[in-house]
């Protein structure tokens, strides 16, 4: 072949069809007022928490999607009462679906464990709540004092005479985690194949 423009036209056609099919069609499909993040005033802290989640790369170990029963054991592990569907994410700003489960899925962590104290301790040192975890401790999200020294109502005793006080970033992150309740609302039967294969 010795005509450059034929080669150019050819590889542009293949590229463009896939571009339309995989990038533009989904983008156009999920467009409209119902797909924007509808944020109330109380959600500001959650938004900040999403930022902390993003900046520290939590998604590299924690997915946020519950798969169907006939695909994986997510629901048997208690990660959600049903699989997640597209509309569950309509209030999210950033697609944080994840492709890795070095840690457990977080799509419904707010339903599973609604105790902020547990999350604070877990973030400060995962070994306190989850012995043997490989999660990095997020100590930099906390201040550590002698017990009682901070006078903060949010202080958590560590058991060795010290206490930790969550910084604003930690409070935001935990607010975000507690907001992860993708399995509330109508169970979309139409999307859930039968439990048996």
């Amino acid at each position: 072949m010795n005509r450059l423009w034929i080669i150019f036209a050819g590889f542009m056609i293949t590229f463009t069809t896939a571009w339309i099919g995989l990038a533009m069609l989904p983008s156009a499909h999920y467009r409209g007022p119902e797909w924007g993040a509808q944020l109330g005033e109380n959600d500001l802290l959650v938004e900040q928490g999403r930022g902390v989640f993003i900046q520290n790369g939590c998604v590299y170990c924690h997915s946020q999607q519950v798969t169907a029963r006939n695909f994986r054991s997510d629901q048997d592990r208690g990660w959600g009462a049903r699989r997640t569907v597209a509309s569950d994410y309509r209030n999210d700003k950033r697609g944080l679906f994840g492709t890795m489960r070095t840690g457990p899925d977080l799509a419904n962590i707010g339903s599973r464990n609604s105790s902020p104290q547990w999350h604070y301790l877990h973030l400060y040192d995962p070994q306190i709540t989850s012995k043997g975890s490989v999660m990095p401790p997020m100590r930099f999200l906390f201040d550590r004092h002698k017990a009682g020294a901070s006078g903060s109502t949010e202080a958590l005793p560590l058991g060795d005479g010290d206490e930790i006080v969550p910084k604003p970033e930690a409070r935001a992150l935990v607010a975000y985690l507690l907001s992860r309740k993708h399995d509330v609302g109508e169970p979309p039967e139409a999307f859930e194949p039968p439990a048996t294969q």
Binding site: L22, S27, Y30, R31, G36, R94, G95
Partner: peptide, 12 residues
């Protein structure tokens, strides 16, 4: 684009 569409765009 909407968060749900970011997954396909990301992996495309």
């Amino acid at each position: 684009v909407a968060a749900i569409a970011q997954g396909p765009v990301n992996w495309w």
